[in-house]
Nucleic acid binder design. Structure first.
Lengths: 260, 260
DNA sequence: CCAAAAGTGTTGGAATTACACCCATGG
DNA sequence: CCATGGGTGTAATTCCAACACTTTTGG
């Protein structure tokens, strides 16, 4: 989706390639400077910020679509991606998109006819992703006017029902945190104990004991201690750790019970 | 949906009233004779058993649709209903329904044209419900040829991806059990400790200590002891309990942490 | 040598588990 | 009176939470 012609073709004939009335929207969480952030985009023709999203190709799985959309936006492939909810109930989504609505969005250069595939009620399936902030480089293009990482404490009013989506995604992540390990996709390969500690605190929104917290991860065999330190200015250099991939994978599949 | 004419109208013109390409399917669990059961239906024109489902009206929420479909099938209203997943990835769902497929299903009396609203890829949103087995009376009609409660241990091969749906629903319920109370909709208003005990064991698929189990429910204030017993043949009559509605509701909303 | 952050062990209390005997009932 | 299932308390253990001082580093 690069040139203006491509976009015109998408608006008029996208229905030949994509499923109509269904989008995937992704809450992409990244972690940086001890802050949990979420990636929002601003599209040309839209008035505010929203979650990055896209349509599902007719032969594609939801999962593949979510991965493709994410790769298009962030450049990262093979992410931890999880479906968290299907959205269709908000007043915005129950009101059908009319010819006039759509015409207003696309501007006067295109004429929308009443059989356009984008008309009607749109539902959305939400996926969340946890990414290493530093690996992401967002591409702006003819669709995406701007993008930005936002503190989740400090979100603006988002388009449509996207605030609901963010809240539901966070709620799901917090619950999942008690049954699955999280972090392998939010942190760099090698990280320090304070880093993962603050990550968990940020996700759960509460403070965790500095001495007890690592014990739980160790007792589950999730961490390997490395023989390296990271210099961090005029302070004691913290040790580096990595996830024990085998145990991490096992914990993902079989589930764990964490009490924090 | 009662007469043959209604059904013909539904097949030909349902798209005017319902959202195309989207169904709601419900995993309706009931509990009886110390067995967790699931309600399956067999539709006219289909070869096997599947979950009861239906379409969403254009102005209806998913939630309302799930409730309406459930009420139509079981006669129960105002149920505990929970969305658990959106299904669209299985090979069956990615293969589009063709004119020939649909024609075969509806039989030779109707002619399916290539603009029929039922053609194409169908996705489904799964809801689960927990119901009191005894309150349910299923109606057969021109669509539903037969219905039956099945032991979940003993399910047949279901239509399409419905086995996946049942498994995902069970998995979700088991996880939810640790964070929300369950039972008010599966048990009669008054029940005995052994009944709720075996219910939890059945849902979790593991045995729970007969003396420790009730203590947890009591410590959360979920149960009121009644001054009644239930005669059960030549044995000691077990006491009856009811849920403490206020605490139950609070636990539902705020969440709990159960370790079992 | 100083400021800032990392690292590390122990203890008291709470929560969880494990376990066995008596009671009530209807036939 | 007997077979069956219901009811109940305690002790041992494990798990969890709370807590403060020492070490390292660069400036």
């Amino acid at each position: 989706m690069k040139t203006a012609d491509d976009i015109i073709d998408f608006i008029l004939h996208g229905g030949e390639q994509y499923l109509p009335h269904l989008t995937i929207d992704s809450a992409i969480f990244g972690y940086h400077a001890q802050q949990l952030k979420i990636l929002l985009v601003k599209l040309h023709g839209e008035d505010g910020w929203g979650l990055p999203g896209g349509f599902v190709k007719k032969q594609e799985t939801f999962r593949e679509a979510a991965g493709r959309i994410l790769a298009e936006r962030t450049g990262i492939e093979n992410l931890f991606l999880q479906q968290f909810y299907a959205f269709g109930d908000s007043p915005y989504r129950r009101r059908e998109q009319t010819v006039a609505d759509l015409q207003k969005k696309v501007g006067p250069w295109l004429t929308i006819t009443d059989d356009n595939w984008l008309l009607g009620r749109q539902i959305s399936i939400g996926y969340y992703a946890l990414v290493d902030f530093e690996q992401v480089s967002v591409q702006t293009d003819l669709l995406v006017e701007d993008y930005r990482w936002w503190d989740i404490q400090d979100l603006p009013h988002l388009l449509y029902d996207h605030n609901d989506m963010v809240n539901k995604a966070l709620e799901t992540i917090r619950l999942q945190l008690y049954h699955q390990p999280i972090g392998a996709n939010l942190l760099p390969d090698k990280f320090t104990l304070p880093e993962i500690h603050i990550l968990y605190e940020t996700l759960l929104g509460k403070s965790l004991d500095r001495r007890n917290f690592p014990r739980k991860l160790f007792s589950l065999g999730l961490l390997n201690k490395l023989d390296q330190q990271r210099p961090i200015g005029p302070h004691r250099a913290p040790n580096l750790y990595e996830f024990n991939k085998a145990n991490y994978q096992k914990a993902l599949e079989e589930g764990i019970v964490l009490v924090m």
